[in-house]
Design a protein around this nucleic acid. Structure first.
Lengths: 337, 337
DNA sequence: TTGTACGCGTTATCAC
DNA sequence: GTGATAACGCGTACAA
């Protein structure tokens, strides 16, 4: 207790065995040129002294840390927590460790974490951008430092980077088709904040899907929420107030739908009768609900995350950095409940 | 593009300025003995060359990595994801970075991660043990390496370690009281696997609480589930089959309750009339449910995690390791819905 | 005020 | 087969 056992070093082993440190190093690494007896002696002594290589020294010398950095807006959201879980799995399969940070959608914080990671000399970075990130200057910074980076989920619009994300339009298309096929004509969208890329994509997908079904786009059917409970309720209220009330609603995500469902229930409307819901999925537990919405559009965060991590490791492995940037798009899919 | 800008070093700056590296080092660290002009010149050059200290070298030299390691059974479970989220916050407040690993309740994997963290020379470790961890030999290993460790949530029974966990009995007591106060006499417990410490604690708390309320303990009211959906249903089925069916049930956790509620609903039983539920909380969304259970016993993972992290940093900060091990117990609390 | 010299632990290179 | 040496980048006693 309290006794300070200084960790044994190669030098110490060498000293005790009266041989040179380099021999010890080679013996420990099973270098072929070292005699069997010496190798054994060294290993035995290493064992005795409880020798453990000092990784920080090795990192320093080898210029590799066997560490990747992962930046996500949040770790407590189900979408990201399953992503990080999968990323950690892939990393551990590659004998890598994960350094992680949360941006909390704050661009400044995001940048700070990136710099920290760079200082820590991570071998690669995975990032899902925060909602407000505008300045992508760090990409060049990391390029210069030769740290490969893969964007995932919330990716930048620029081209020459690795990115993995899901195409929101396929799921939207299925949702609208699904609604149309059971006779809905008045299909609304409760979208998120207008400045969000995620919202813009949903809006575009919505209009396109309506068009494909030969349904008319009605701008009053497209409302926005700031994603607070209050905002969600205001949004649905706008729709309910319309003279020709929509009978089917796609919403920004499952959390919005949860609030909305609760609210319309209070208003006496019956789900899947008076009004039908589909939303982008970020929450997995509909199966327990007495009266779940019609469906959710899945984005498979774990698959996305795995793919992103695999791409990253492909780039980390390659000595040459002249690889083409890679873009992988997953289709979002409607899953009926 | 593709141009390999080697990161500038102190030496490089020194060479260009025709001064010695040590002067540069001191100037960059605002050492008082360096002249203002020199300092300025150095900083300017550093700026120009885009100098960035090589942290791996500094880690190596200073024997500190400004990194803590966090090991959790899983990152995708809500309980742990809010914990890790909070830990990351605390770490970043201390300008620390978080290295993380998932044990997936596999003791071998857990140990491997611990060793990796040790190799990485993390400055401290936070861990919530996996369900099957028996061998605590690593505690001594980390003590020898002088790496402070704080256990959290799932903690070992040994004494001389730092630990933060919640006392399951307080919430159980409130739950049973709550049930008793509205007239329930037949209160059952759907517990988890018997070998789990978490189950044993619930069982003990359950019996003690019954006793406090002068209710008789009936062993047939204590059933077990392996926490699969199938197991959960079998457990409730056993209770429903009893001649004197329990009217109130405490269950291992919210997920069990979700399955059970769904099942009894199918059986035609009405919640909060035919049968009442309370469970240990690991899931936050009851508020959206049409017909939620009576309540949940909260364990506040974020508060626990924060406290654990703070204790860790207290120990990291202290040069001396002769600090007393600290134990903090949070009360679990019944929250009625 | 600045420079010299050394050490942190490891490994690659060259020499014997 | 093994040893000496240098080098990775930085910080810091000690000397000047």
């Amino acid at each position: 207790m309290g006794m300070k056992k200084k960790p044994a070093t190669i030098k110490e082993i060498a000293r005790r065995l009266k041989i040179s440190p380099s021999t010890v190093s080679r013996a420990l690494n099973d270098h072929p040129s070292i005699g069997l007896v010496t190798t054994m002696r060294v290993k035995k002594m290493a064992e005795e002294l409880n020798y453990e290589p000092n990784q920080t020294a090795i990192f320093f010398k080898q210029r590799r840390t066997f560490t990747i950095g992962v930046i996500l807006p949040s770790l407590s959201e189900p979408f990201f927590s399953s992503a990080i879980s999968e990323i950690e799995k892939v990393a551990s399969e590659h004998d890598y460790t994960v350094l992680m940070g949360q941006s909390h959608d704050d661009a400044e914080r995001e940048l700070k974490i990136l710099q920290t990671f760079k200082k820590h000399r991570v071998d690669g970075i995975l990032i899902s951008l925060g909602k407000n990130t505008e300045d992508l200057g760090f990409v060049e910074m990391l390029n210069d430092a030769e740290i490969p980076i893969v964007f995932f989920d919330c990716v930048p619009r620029i081209d020459d980077v690795n990115k993995v994300y899901s195409d929101l339009s396929t799921g939207m298309r299925e949702a609208i088709q699904s609604f149309a096929s059971i006779g809905h004509k008045n299909i609304a969208l409760i979208n998120g904040p207008e400045n969000l890329l995620a919202s813009q994509e949903r809006a575009a997908a919505y209009r396109k899907a309506l068009n494909s079904e030969n349904l008319e786009y009605n701008e009053r059917y497209e409302v926005h929420t700031d994603l607070t409970e209050q905002g969600n309720i205001e949004a649905i209220d706008k729709l309910l107030a319309l003279s020709e009330r929509p009978s089917a609603i796609v919403s920004f995500n499952d959390f919005v739908t949860l609030d909305v469902i609760k609210y319309v229930r209070q208003k006496g409307l019956v789900q899947k009768k008076d009004v039908f819901f589909i939303s982008y999925a970020n929450y997995p537990l509909w199966k327990y609900m007495e009266n779940p919405p019609m469906g959710s559009i899945e984005q498979y965060p774990d698959q996305q995350a795995r793919k992103a991590a695999e791409i990253l490791f492909k780039h980390i492995g390659a000595d040459d950095d002249e690889q083409q940037p890679e873009t992988v798009v997953f289709e979002s899919k409607l899953v009926l409940k």
